[in-house]
């Protein structure tokens, strides 16, 4: 048994897992405040990463200009999406809402592939990347950077929900829309804000992953991988999404390890999370931290 490889893979899993956690947090943010399941979460990453790439490469803007521009674009994009497409869907049955986001995902995936082509494109070097030796493990500095950024985002979220006015309004809306409204919170603005924040933070994650691995349509698959994460953590739990992200990130790497060592089934890296998903749904459908639905007649 190759012990070093296992540890290396687990570390990789934690790094990837924090990114999953960030994306899952964005997903949970939308679900908690607007009760919409966003199947287009992966496209947020994709659009953010491509926008930043286009500003850097096509318009040759420096990173410190193009990055804020990307984030500003995503704010507008998120709000527009909510106002134009999702506001008419309030009160519709759940399948309609799911299908609208699936339709959006399909539309934007094709649009982005049309504009930017189907091939992976590398980001220009923004930061120096080199291998760093930490406790005998070779870790690329880009990964460390991505992990630091993810941690900053998570801490930022914590303070945002704990202390900021908008964050408190969002929590109130998530708790009960009617009560929030009667306290003078504009539910409309909260909905728009949660989509905007979700789009911005996802785009940030997209740019980070793009810098490490290059941008391609494969980025949007993270939007699908988010489902095992949020189901494991509980659909409406921010803490759960971080824990779920870490567990799924480690799980897929460990599954890959066991597969390459003994099982030789292949493709375990991509499929293991879905097996885990089905098992969790059978045993504990509300996840580790999710609130249980109790139905009364």
């Amino acid at each position: 048994m190759n012990f070093d490889l296992l540890i290396q893979l687990i570390v990789n899993g934690i790094i990837v897992g924090t990114l999953y956690g960030v994306v899952a947090m964005c997903f949970v943010l939308i679900y908690k405040s607007t009760k919409i399941v966003n199947f287009a979460q992966g496209e947020f990453l994709l659009i953010g990463a491509w926008t930043c790439w286009a500003l850097l490469v096509k318009f040759e803007l420096p990173f410190y200009v193009s990055f804020p521009l990307t984030l500003a674009f995503m704010v507008v994009f998120g709000i527009l999406l909510q106002v134009v497409v999702l506001r008419p869907m309030i009160g519709e049955p759940i399948i309609s809402v799911i299908m609208v986001t699936i339709g959006l995902s399909m539309f934007f995936q094709a649009l982005v592939a049309w504009i930017f082509g189907g091939y992976t494109k590398a980001y220009p070097k923004v930061f120096e990347t080199e291998s760093v030796n930490i406790l005998g493990l070779q870790i690329e500095s880009a990964y460390i950077m991505s992990m630091v950024i993810s941690l900053i985002i998570m801490i930022g979220f914590y303070y945002f929900f704990k202390y900021s006015r908008l964050g408190l309004a969002m929590r109130a809306t998530a708790f009960n829309q009617q009560i929030a409204q009667s306290l003078g919170i504009s539910v409309k603005h909260v909905f728009a804000a949660s989509w905007a924040i979700s789009a911005v933070v996802s785009a940030l994650a997209g740019v980070v992953i793009g810098m490490v691995n290059g941008v391609s349509s494969a980025l949007s698959f993270i939007g699908i991988k988010v489902f095992p994460v949020v189901i494991l953590g509980g659909l409406d739990s921010i803490i759960g999404s971080i824990a779920g992200g870490l567990i799924i990130g480690v799980l897929e790497n460990v599954a890959e390890f066991f597969d390459s060592q003994w099982l030789h089934i292949g493709n375990m890296y991509n499929i293991a999370p879905f097996y885990a998903l089905v098992i969790i749904l059978m045993i504990k459908p509300y996840g580790l931290f999710g609130t249980k639905d109790i139905e009364r007649i």
Partner: peptide
């Protein structure tokens, strides 16, 4: 469909999404 006996709505959508990927993987293998 067995998960459908226990879960519904959104959770079922995600479970069937997982089965889509699992079956796709099965076809390739």
């Amino acid at each position: 469909g067995i998960p459908a006996g226990r879960i519904k709505g959104l959770y079922l959508a995600i479970a069937t999404l997982a089965s889509q990927y699992i079956l796709e993987d099965f076809f390739a293998r």
